[in-house]
């Protein structure tokens, strides 16, 4: 009712890719923090965390890629140029698709940024 437009559309998909980024961020931060706080002498927890963060990063990128593909589809696969400023349902839909696609790009870059430390940092202490 509230956030819905015609054909049961809502504003929520726009938030999808950055929400995946946020969940990924919270998960990798939490995992690393617990692994370091509860570290065992053999470092196995931290190693597990590094692999886990890698896996989470792949999963998050896959989810963003899916959301981005859907958005690309809704936008019309780039056949129509912005600004999508007309007062029509078509333009409103293309605008949301395009904006979501842009957000998917930003979210993907940010997920990669945040995932990278697990590749390079090999221990908790310094």
């Amino acid at each position: 009712m509230f956030l819905h437009g015609a054909r049961n559309e809502t504003l929520w998909p726009l938030m999808g890719p950055p929400t995946v980024w946020a969940l990924h961020f919270a998960a990798v931060y939490g995992w690393a923090a617990v692994a370091c706080a509860k570290a065992t002498p053999d470092d196995s927890m931290f190693l597990a965390a590094r692999w886990g963060i890698g896996a989470l990063t792949v999963v998050a990128l896959a989810m963003i890629a899916y959301a981005g593909y859907r958005a690309w589809q809704i936008w019309g696969f780039g056949r129509f140029d912005p600004p999508h400023a007309a007062g029509t349902e078509t333009d409103r839909r293309r605008f949301l698709g395009f904006a979501t696609l842009l957000l998917a790009g930003l979210s993907a870059v940010s997920v990669i940024f945040v995932g990278l430390p697990a590749l390079f940092i090999a221990e908790c202490t310094w």
């Binding site: 961020f25 690393a32 370091c36 945040v114 430390p117 697990a118 390079f120 940092i121 221990e123 310094w126």
Partner: peptide, 9 residues
Amino acid sequence: GLPTISLAF
């Protein structure tokens, strides 16, 4: 003094 990996995120 947080773990370096946290700082890196």
